[in-house]
């Protein structure tokens, strides 16, 4: 065991955390934006002038991917990967702490993106029938995003703290 989990192996887990944040949140957003995009394209077939509005609604589940990217970036930056001098002596504990810090964004990002997309699809249908309700229609998907924002916050705060280990 000690040979496998030598002192420097923390770096692996730290990067795994960063990768998971970008990967899962990105995958969720990709699916979400795709779902919303199909609904949006359907609306534009009949009502081309709705393009601007449905595009904004389609974009809403895309933020999780950005937050995931952001967490991955902060983690890699703290690890010195961006500046070209990775922290090769990162202890196992610290590496696992990085992994843990990234998980809220990774998991909540994935799930919230897909559920936000479902709300966005419904909102797109709403806007197609009641264009005047655009203001409200944006709120429903945004409610879901709240939890991605909370996850983002916790991940950032945790990453900040891990740096001091």
């Amino acid at each position: 065991m000690s040979a496998v989990f030598s002192d420097g192996s923390g770096l692996f887990f730290a990067i795994l955390g960063a990768a998971l944040a970008a990967l899962l949140a990105g995958a969720g957003s990709a699916r979400g934006v795709g779902m919303a995009g199909q609904a949006a394209a359907g609306v534009v077939t009949d009502q081309p002038d709705m393009f601007g509005r449905v595009l904004i609604l389609q974009l809403l589940p895309g933020t999780q991917g950005i937050y995931g990217l952001l967490i991955a970036f902060v983690a890699m930056n703290n690890l010195g990967i961006m500046s070209g001098s990775p922290e090769v002596n990162c202890s196992l504990l610290k590496g696992l702490a990085y992994l843990g810090a990234c998980l809220p964004m990774a998991i909540v990002g994935y799930i919230s993106a897909i559920n936000q997309a479902k709300a966005a699809v419904a909102s797109i249908a709403l806007v197609s029938k009641r264009p005047d309700q655009f203001g409200k229609s944006m709120l429903f998907p945004a409610m879901v995003e709240t939890y991605a924002i909370f996850a983002l916050l916790i991940s950032i705060l945790a990453l900040n703290g891990v740096g001091n280990i």
Partner: peptide, 15 residues
């Protein structure tokens, strides 16, 4: 819920 004020501010800055 107002923690989003920090979170979204951070998002802009970090991106």
């Amino acid at each position: 819920s107002y923690s989003r004020l920090l979170a979204l501010g951070l998002a802009t800055g970090v991106i």
